[in-house]
């Protein structure tokens, strides 16, 4: 089986360190549960060993502005 995180359609998923995650939450003035979610068993974050409550940073390429960032809480 090929590694799905290497597929060109799967954007880069990284586990955010606690302090950085807090910065993001502060920036948007939200609680972790107000972010969009990603399931713990999502294949794209298997490698990051993320646990429930962690925040995943997703970097996607954008047609219009090159790169966009997205955050999801692990559920």
């Amino acid at each position: 089986m090929s590694k799905i995180e290497n597929h060109f359609l799967v954007p880069k998923h990284t586990l955010m360190p606690k302090d950085e995650a807090k910065k993001v939450l502060d920036q948007y003035a939200v609680k972790a549960e107000d972010l969009p979610i990603i399931l713990v068993d999502d294949p794209a974050i298997k490698k990051t060993r993320a646990e429930r409550g962690d925040i995943i940073k997703i970097e996607r390429s954008s047609f219009t502005i090159g790169k966009t960032v997205y955050y999801r809480t692990v559920k």
Partner: peptide, 15 residues
Amino acid sequence: GGGRIIQYLYSEDGV
């Protein structure tokens, strides 16, 4: 409506 985030930047590019 409840304040949950859907996109971090409108349409993900702000355009």
